[in-house]
Nucleic acid binder design. Structure first.
Lengths: 333, 333
DNA sequence: GCATAAAATGCAAACGTTTACAGATTTTCT
DNA sequence: AGAAAATCTGTAAACGTTTGCATTTTATGC
């Protein structure tokens, strides 16, 4: 398509060395005499030579590219994770191929396959449930994979998370000590491993231990309007405190309550489980389980760089600390 | 690094054809007899053959990859644009290499160069000012570029925008007819072409024509706290209506006003110039110039596909319609 | 100054495709 | 049936690098 202006041959000829030497200079190989190196560098600069990364990728079998699999770019939760990933990737000179998978023009494993065909050196996966086909695809090519902010159900893959169970229990406890005894939990995808194995069990155990009656688990609440429309049901069920996994749904619930003339936190306490920008700009500001999203992304990417270089990784299941940040949607401040 | 399991050679041998034929089958070339094609397809499936996109890229000089240059992933404005781009890219089977450039570990033209070295087939650029070096880099490789939601100062590049000048004038007019006579404009980067050549002139002309006194232009207001901290200055300057380019800054101003016990829109009207999710979830909801962000991204990507295929493009400067959506931060509803 | 080791360089074969072009096979037409 | 046309298939040369190995050059020690 576009004519390649200058190749390694041109540089070699002009600098009166072989292409091998030019390649060594480009790659910072130390086995080049200083004079030679300088001469080559001068020519490179003069001709504006830029190595063709595709050819490099083919020859070296490393593309310095990583794949990012994310459900939805416009979800701030993922955006903030991605930012951490991106910064570290830049630091280590990796490019990022991003693919979002919530719009289902292609099935997940097709998307992943297309990433792997591009010969990415590694993958960071952020969706909340890793399908079996996807897992198989990864294993077939032994491309390193790190899960960021999510888990697979068998802990087969490296991951960076927080202790969701502990965090949720702490949040529930907060509301409980505010005098709220009709607690509920609102989740997006109930089959997501984090929900099915951590959040929901944490909730159920808390209800059980404190003898708080039948659990009130609201599932499939994924966006603003889902949250907004859920509120009447919460009222009907007499819920006076909820923990909500998605920020945007929390805000929906909050606004719905306010529009109905109710008071937050007096009538309903809300704790949101992933503190993005959203949670702090609405009024009343939402009490949140503050996940270190940027750091989670950064740590995941850093770990991936190690895996890609076959470096030793002591712990492939990293759990970062969270913080329960009390704002205006709960009573005790 | 990772051993390539199956190559085109393996398929060729197994199917008793040449690699050329396999290649034709893979690429849907019609010059293959049906029996042969079926035989090859059967082998491909049986061996789980997947073409190596890097080798394809080198041989064909097309990588089916486009570069996305974006200032900040966590800015919903760009996220929503990106979503439109992503969907169309998927449709046309392009992968996206995304690079954010607001964190300055590398200079913009280095970032761009690294994209071009990866041999992307095209680029969508969303930052708000295209540096000269960047423009030069693009021109040197004749890689097609489309600007989405932004412009360059010489209209050298294809672009997809709205009529910012008209939109801003309309917004100012709205506030003016609400009786607000002390209007101000709040922008992020005053050197961004859209601001310096469209928004600010629109504002200045409006002030001039309606004899509204000296312009009040607030620049460098980029995030939530910039907006929050700006509010006292607005009060001091007696401003009773502002148009704000960034959603997040609008929200900062809004919350600052509310926290100071002031009323929006009575004491201050706010119109925000890029309607992301943020503008509609805060209370009072913000009156917005609603840019069709998703569509802008989609149209930009569609145009890029045409440019990459050397198809005819009738108009390379597309202006999409916007909508002035009146919400609660202005009086007349 | 010479043998030897170390450092620098070059040669050429990968890497896994695509794609002119030529050659072989099949179809069509008379 | 045979010639011409149309369709199919194979050969081999790209594409622009990296890299193991061999070779040449330089440095080192005595």
């Amino acid at each position: 398509m576009h004519k390649q202006e200058v190749t390694i041959y041109d540089v070699a000829r002009e600098a009166k060395v072989s292409m091998a030497t030019v390649s060594r200079v480009v790659n910072g190989n130390s086995n080049v005499r200083k004079e030679t190196r300088d001469r080559v560098l001068e020519v490179i600069k003069r001709l504006h030579y830029q190595p063709n990364a595709v050819a490099q990728g083919l020859a070296s079998k490393r593309t310095t590219t990583v794949g990012l699999i994310v459900p939805d770019l416009t979800n701030l939760y993922f955006a903030e994770l991605s930012k951490g990933i991106d910064d570290i990737a830049l630091l280590y000179k990796y490019n990022i191929i991003i693919t979002s998978i919530e719009n289902r023009l292609m099935k997940e494993d097709q998307v992943i396959q297309s990433l792997l065909n591009k010969q990415v050196d590694g993958v960071i996966y952020m969706s909340n449930r890793l399908s079996d086909e996807a897992a198989d695809a990864f294993k077939r090519t032994d491309t390193p994979v790190v899960l960021a902010g999510t888990k697979d159900n068998r802990d087969d893959f490296a991951s960076v998370t927080i202790d969701y169970k502990k965090a949720d229990t702490e949040a529930l406890n907060l509301m409980y000590h505010d005098g709220k005894k009709h607690l509920g939990i609102v989740v997006g995808d109930q089959d997501a491993v984090v929900n099915s194995e951590n959040r929901i069990p944490a909730y159920e155990e808390f209800m059980e231990e404190n003898d708080l009656g039948t659990p009130r688990i609201y599932t499939d609440i994924k966006d603003y309007s889902d949250g907004y429309n859920l509120y009447p049901q919460l009222v009907k069920d007499g819920v006076d405190g909820v923990i909500v996994t998605r920020d945007i749904s929390s805000v929906g619930i909050l606004n719905s309550a306010m529009d109905a003339g109710k008071k937050v936190p007096e009538d309903l306490e809300i704790v949101t489980a992933s503190a993005t920008q959203l949670a702090s700009v609405v009024r009343p500001a939402l009490t949140t389980i503050k996940q270190p999203l940027y750091d989670m992304g950064a740590v995941a990417m850093r770990m991936l760089t190690k895996l890609m270089n076959n470096e030793e990784v002591d712990d492939t299941h990293i759990v970062l600390p969270y913080e329960l940040v009390k704002k205006q949607s709960t009573l005790n401040q």
